[in-house]
């Protein structure tokens, strides 16, 4: 609180409902299980009993020697990068077409890009599974990446759509008046202005893919993504600590990416 006179508070009377306490309590409950995971990854035993008996860094050391797990993490990085790139491009193209042109099927295109958001993942999983069966494409990382592109498209589109709708089309007119072609205008005027948003869309799509399991379960072949690998191993009690150590490392990565994406989006 500053010395500035307090402006009139609006809403429920301050003392009536302990809102701050509610928020902090919620925060505590949200972080508690994650904290427990964190503790577990340093716990010497394979079951978690309080009080903790001994701490160790062994699980983190074991991560390095666990080939299949590292391969799964690499697979997820590849699928995430590939699908995020495709989804971001689709989102950018859809946003530009929809906001800068009037054409037949404009509404349909926008709806199509947003619809994957309202199809339950299990249904999407079945749909992609049948597609790859029908075209006789073996299930592989490629099939997972194609599936994830569709799932990430609504996010990538909505994020870029919001930014582009805030850009004045007059800028583009000016560039074209100066003799630029429209594609050149898009590339040299619009894209630079969209820069941080494109990155934010890419990061968001990447995170969506990186964490996705319900669709991936239907689509992986012999090469699992990290969540699918985790899902298969999670029942081995003895392997749990190593998995969690790896997951904690990845968690630090995704949280950092999320913070970057949030920052890029809120900066506008």
């Amino acid at each position: 609180m500053t010395a500035r006179p307090v402006t009139r508070r609006i809403g429920v009377g301050r003392t009536a409902v302990p809102l701050r306490g509610f928020y902090l309590g919620m925060l505590f409950l949200l972080y508690l299980p994650i904290g427990i995971l964190f503790v577990f990854s340093f716990n010497a035993g394979t079951t978690l009993r309080f009080p903790i008996e001994a701490l160790t860094l062994d699980w983190y050391a074991e991560v390095i020697g666990n080939g299949p797990m590292l391969a799964a993490a690499r697979n997820s990085l590849l699928v995430g990068a590939g699908s995020a790139t495709a989804a971001t491009i689709i989102g950018l193209l859809v946003s530009t077409a929809v906001l800068r042109f009037r054409f037949r099927g404009r509404g349909a295109l926008l709806a199509l890009a947003g619809l994957p958001l309202i199809v339950p993942f299990v249904v999407m999983g079945v749909a992609f599974f049948l597609l790859f069966v029908a075209v006789d494409l073996p299930r592989s990382l490629l099939s997972v990446a194609i599936g994830h592109t569709i799932i990430a498209t609504p996010y990538a589109t909505l994020i870029q759509l919001a930014r582009l709708s805030g850009l004045d089309p007059a800028l583009e007119d000016a560039a074209m008046d100066l003799g630029a072609t429209y594609p050149a205008t898009l590339r040299r005027v619009v894209l630079p202005l969209m820069g941080p948003t494109v990155v934010a869309a890419w990061l968001t799509s990447f995170i969506v893919s990186f964490d996705e399991i319900a669709v991936a379960i239907f689509l992986v072949g012999g090469d699992p993504t990290f969540p699918v690998f985790l899902y298969g191993q999670v029942r081995f009690a003895q392997r749990l600590p190593v998995l969690i150590a790896m997951a904690v490392l990845l968690m630090i990565g995704t949280v950092a990416l999320t913070l970057v994406a949030l920052r890029l989006r809120t900066k506008e």
Binding site: L78, A81, S140, L141, L142, S143, A145, G221, G222, D223
Partner: peptide, 11 residues
């Protein structure tokens, strides 16, 4: 690279 891996793994 991913696409390449996909085809490679697929025979």
């Amino acid at each position: 690279i991913l696409a390449a891996c996909g085809t490679q793994g697929g025979g």
